[in-house]
Simulated assay, not measured.
Amino acid sequence: MSITQQYLLDSYRARSLGEPAPPAPGTHDRQAVREWRDERRFRAVLAGRPARRRLRDALGRWRRRPT
């Protein structure tokens, strides 16, 4: 069963029971990714590592590297 089919089934079930409809798939993706990133940064600080954007910093260094 795909995500869309599950959402439609849950929406139908909620409507027939008089409950509020569930959020559409992908509605809270940005918030979930942001919370995951914040958790990783927090754990890095607790472990004594710098809490920065490692991938973006590495790509920036690679891009600014003299040729």
Rank of each mutant, 00 (worst) to 15 (best):
R41C: 01
E19H: 13
V33E: 11
T67C: 03
R61K: 12
M1F: 08
R53S: 15
E19F: 12
R41H: 12
P23Y: 08
Q6N: 11
R54Q: 13
T27W: 03
G60T: 06
P25A: 06
F42I: 05
Q31H: 07
V33H: 02
P66T: 03
R64G: 10
A58N: 07
R40H: 09
A58R: 10
R61C: 05
F42Q: 13
R30V: 09
A24H: 08
L55P: 00
R65M: 05
P22T: 07
Q5K: 11
M1C: 06
W36T: 09
D57P: 00
M1Y: 09
D29C: 03
T27E: 14
D57C: 02
P22I: 05
G60K: 02
R61Q: 11
R30W: 10
T4I: 09
G48R: 02
D57M: 02
R52I: 05
V33K: 06
I3Y: 02
M1W: 10
A47I: 01
F42R: 15
H28C: 09
L59A: 09
Y7Q: 01
E19C: 07
P22E: 09
E19K: 14
R63F: 05
L9I: 12
A24F: 06
G48I: 06
D57R: 04
R43G: 00
L46P: 00
P20N: 11
T4V: 07
L17A: 11
R54D: 14
Q31I: 06
R43M: 09
A32I: 09
R40S: 03
L55N: 05
T27M: 13
R15W: 04
G60A: 14
